[in-house]
């Protein structure tokens, strides 16, 4: 399984390095989102500091939708998905590889997103390790269920509209817990022992297990 995961992850990351869709298109999108949020709160600029954790997670969620769609649009071209199945790769391996590749892309995006929040919203961040871990585990949760849903919908005609409808309600706990965990960490109130971080870990673990078990059923045509 891990061998298949490595092959898939390296393949996806190599494609990204050559095409730079995430860096050249999704990253600017994240910047635009940050600017648009600032417009929404223009009357009370200080409010941006207060709501920055929530905005971080909303931006992460939106950009992960794009990254996920990109990840599976690669497989719909030229029947690449059928080839993957015909190679006899372990479906669980394909799943883990996809999650890992998108996670790496998202980590890069989130580094820029955090920088944007610090620079544009004047938020002072302490406890960077805690924040980074919370960001990583929350994103992993989003992607764990997101990869399953993207695989289900990538071949359909309504893929752009159905993925957000399926994914957003399911990952609502990540948005809520991630925001609360970041708020507490920024306020210096709680570290990684925060129950909200625990909930994020539980979420990621539950959906990684389910995704690994069911990806075979999702992938079969």
């Amino acid at each position: 399984m891990l061998k298949a995961a490595k092959v898939i992850a390296l393949k996806d990351l190599r494609i990204e390095l050559r095409s730079r869709v995430v860096l050249n298109q999704i990253l600017p999108f994240v910047v635009v989102v940050l600017i648009i949020f600032a417009f929404a709160f223009s009357k009370y600029p200080t409010l941006l500091v207060t709501v920055a954790p929530g905005l971080y997670w909303v931006a992460t969620l939106f950009s992960s939708l794009l990254a996920l769609q990109r990840s599976f649009s690669l497989e719909t071209e030229n029947g690449a998905k059928d080839a993957l199945i015909l190679y006899g790769l372990d479906p669980a391996g394909i799943y883990v590889g996809k999650v890992f590749a998108v996670l790496v892309e998202m980590v890069v995006l989130e580094v820029f997103l955090t920088l944007g929040i610090v620079l544009l919203y004047s938020v002072h961040l302490h406890e960077l390790v805690d924040l980074a871990f919370t960001g990583l585990i929350g994103t992993l949760g989003i992607l764990a269920v997101g990869v399953t849903f993207s695989a289900m919908t990538s071949a359909s005609k309504a893929k752009e509209t159905i993925l957000p409808l399926l994914l957003l309600p399911v990952v609502a706990p990540v948005l809520l817990s991630g925001t609360k965990a970041w708020e507490n960490e920024i306020a210096g109130k709680a570290g990684l022992g925060d129950p909200w971080v625990g909930l994020l870990i539980l979420f990621a673990a539950a959906f990684l297990s389910l995704g690994t078990l069911t990806f075979g059923s999702v992938l079969e045509e």
């Binding site: 849903f149 289900m152 005609k157 159905i162 706990p173 539950a206």
Partner: peptide
Amino acid sequence: VSEDREQRAKRSAVAALIAFIDVPIVHQS
């Protein structure tokens, strides 16, 4: 969205399981 019967059945069953696992977590949060 799925036109194929078997595909639809499998995918919606997985989606239903995701929803089922999600509900207690949503509730707790």
